[in-house]
Each structure stands twice: as structure tokens, then as C-alpha cells.
Amino acid sequence: MRIGETVTFGGSGLDRAAHLRNRPEELGLMARDPEAGVLPLWRGKPLLVGAAETEAPGWLAADDAALADAPDRVFLGLDEGRPRFACDLSAWEPEETPETLGAFHDPSEQRHPAMSDTHRFAELRAAMTRLTARDAELVATARGILGWHATHRFCARCGHESHVAMAGWQRLCPACGAHHFPRTDPVAIMLITRGNSVLIGRSPGWPVGMYSLLAGFVEPGETIEAAVRRETFEEAGVRVGKVKYLACQPWPFPSSLMFGCRGVALTDEITLDPAELEDARWVTREEMMAAYAGEDPTLKPARPGAIAHFIIANWLADRLD
């Protein structure tokens, strides 16, 4: 798919400068560069500034008072020569913790008392389509790597607490010497068509009327194409024949790489797995176009910014080349 990398988080040519990760002294000097910036995240929410078209990551100086108690900084790379770092401020406790925190839709925002009123921690899903391609890649990278550190503090080999190394891109176990690297889970997400219709489904707990493409994790020893066929049959009972890769999207919720594919259904009878899907249905191109135009109150398409929304929109526009 020629426009595959235009998907949100699809890549902006960020110079990750991996050769600097084992040079702590050099990175320390770079962090003090006036052009450098540190992006704090609070419980998965990036610090943002501005609104609507002007929304952007809330980069702070390395010596900002709000970062005084921040743990290790992760080096994200060079943004047009400007050093970029990220840190986790999840230990900070706001006066109120909303019930929506961690939910599929969290509209709450948190403001740190040591930061400007224009800065707030906000859910990335709501802001991702308003960020530039470069900002989206930086924020997604920060969210993914910090999320990995939060859930992988202990050595998987011996159980001892590990330490951050290589500017945040490794964890080392001081007890057994094991090296641990950030993980990304491969997920197949598929546009399954039969004639003029596409197969969509919804998971329990999703917003009312929201549907998306079927998706599932790729298992060890399995190809992406095989995962498309297996997941479609397991979730909806539909057999799939030919499968074609379209595009991929890093998905930092928390750490997946979504492999977008197109598959041709061999059968159309749906048999739901209720543990996976609340509902699944075939929708014609015309019905989906009405949904994307906001003309069908019973059918809400996948969230803008998600690869499912991107693939369906390009299917409707006949751009899956």
C-alpha cells in the first residue's frame, strides 16, 4: 500500500540515533542543550500544550522543577537535531483521580502544580490525530517504552529487580547478568471482504454503536496471513482465503505493532465467539460510507487515528493499492 506510512504513528523519519544510547556522558551534555526537551508522561498520558490545530507535546527543560523527582530519562532520538527525552511522572498524585482513568474513553485532564496552566496530561487517543507526524511518532515511542519499563521491572530469568540501561532501551539484571529489551506484540487486523461488503465487529465494553475491523495477536510460529485466517474464524466463524498485507501501525496502547491486511472471505455465515465479540456483521460499502459521513446513528466507525479507520477509509476510496 503506497500510502501506508501516512497512518497515525506511521513514521516520520525520526533519527533515533541509537549509536548514542551507550554514551551517557554525551547524552548528559545534550540534555542541557537549550534546544533539548523532556516529555513527561503520567500514567500513560503525555503532557500536551495548546488546543485543536496547535496541540503539541509539552516539552520541558531537563532541569525543570516539575521533573525533580522523575526517574530515569529515556532518549527518544534527535528531532531535526534537537535531543528528545521522556520520563515517567506516574508517582505524582493529583488531588483527584478520576474514575475514567484507564478506561477506553478518558476525557479527564490533569495539571501538575509545578507546570504552566497551559500544560496538561491528556489521553493520547483523543489527541493523536491532531499531532504532527513527527510529534505523534515521538509521543508513541515515549508511551511505548515507558510502559514497557513500568511492567518489566523484574528479571524474567531470576526475578531480581533489573536496572535501566542504554538510555532506556535495555534493562540489565545485576544478579544474573540478563539483558532485557523492549517488546512489541504483533497483531493482525484485517479488512475481510466478500463482494461489496466488509466484516466488522465490536468488543464488549466499547462505546454504543462503535464497530471496527476484527483483530488478534499473532501466535508463536505463525505467519501474519495464518493469523488473519485463524482469528477471523475463531471470532466470527468466517473462513478466509487469499490474504494480502496492506500497512502497519505502531500502537502504543500499550505496545503492539498492528499489521493491516486484506482478506477475501470464502464463507459469509457468522458464528460469534461471545468471549471475543459482542456482535459482528457484514456491512455494504454504501452503508459504511453513510456511517463515515455520520448519517447512520446505529453504526459508528473505528476511532480516527486507528489503522482500522485508515484501512476502511481507503477501501471506500478505492486506494488499497
Score class of each variant (00 low, 15 high):
S203Y: 10
D268C: 04
E161H: 07
P107S: 05
M258V: 07
R84L: 04
P182Q: 09
L124S: 06
Q110F: 06
V240M: 10
V74Q: 03
A215R: 02
F259S: 00
P24V: 11
P250H: 07
G50T: 09
D321Q: 08
V264D: 11
V139L: 13
W59V: 03
H152A: 09
R43L: 10
A178N: 13
S255G: 14
P174A: 08
T6R: 14
A293Q: 11
A178D: 15
I192V: 15
A167N: 05
T184C: 08
H149K: 06
L214Y: 03
P113R: 01
L214K: 01
F259M: 09
E225N: 09
E109D: 01
C158W: 02
L213V: 05
E93A: 10
I224R: 14
A280C: 12
S203E: 14
M166D: 13
D33C: 13
E225H: 13
E219H: 14
R73T: 00
A140T: 08
F181P: 00
N196S: 12
V208C: 12
S162V: 13
S90P: 01
R303K: 11
A265R: 08
T267M: 04
A293I: 09
P182S: 12
F217E: 15
A142T: 00
M258T: 05
L246F: 08
A66T: 01
D117W: 05
E161D: 08
G102S: 03
H19N: 14
L320E: 08
D185Q: 14
L41F: 10
L320A: 09
G10N: 10
L146C: 04
A51G: 13
E109R: 12
E231F: 02
V228E: 06
L191A: 15
P34E: 13
E123N: 14
M1E: 01
A51P: 14
W42P: 06
T232C: 11
T129R: 09
A313V: 00
A52W: 05
R285K: 10
V164H: 09
G205E: 12
V264L: 10
R281L: 08
A188N: 08
A52V: 04
A247V: 07
M288L: 15
P174G: 06
R157I: 03
A56I: 09
P46W: 11
A167D: 06
R157P: 02
L29P: 00
V198R: 01
P182A: 11
P207H: 06
F217Q: 15
D63L: 06
Q110N: 01
G205Y: 11
T6C: 05
R84N: 03
G11V: 08
L266H: 08
L20G: 15
V7C: 11
A156K: 06
A265N: 07
